[in-house]
Amino acid sequence: MLSNPFSVRSSFREMERLRREMNDLFETLDRGPRMSLATTYPAMNVWTNPDGAVVTAELPGVNPDDLEISVQGDTLTLRGARNPEPLNEGEAFHRRERGSGKFQRAFQLPFAVDASKVEASYELGVLSITLPRAESDKPKKIQVTSA
């Protein structure tokens, strides 16, 4: 038997369906940007000149030995970890805002990098990676000769 669309029960059912749809909608809205943001640790600044780039990132309290930097073509990949603060028995955190754990980030540069000349330094919690542009990638100046 067909249910009466105006019955109390079916209008409740309809409201329930709407509620679920709205929830799904907000959930996807909520999830979308968060997922894309999650890959952007650490934040990076990129400084350039015609011969290459310097990438800086704030990574306080990271052991430089735990940082792994690799370059392939025009892509810089940074991997690392920060250890959580060790607590002894009977000690408790009042506040815990500093994140810890593993991170990984790949960054594409607008040019091919000469991987053999990449240098990195870590000072005062700031990582700085110098990425010279590959000679083969640099624009060639073409001499015009007049006959």
Binding site: E58, F93, E97, R98, L124, V126
Partner: peptide, 22 residues
């Protein structure tokens, strides 16, 4: 700055992330 604060019997410890500070 982001901080961690914890307390022991004898002291309070404050740890703050301040990149670029010496």
């Amino acid at each position: 700055p982001r901080v961690d604060i914890y307390e022991t019997n004898e002291a309070i410890a404050v740890i703050a992330d301040m990149p670029g500070v010496d």
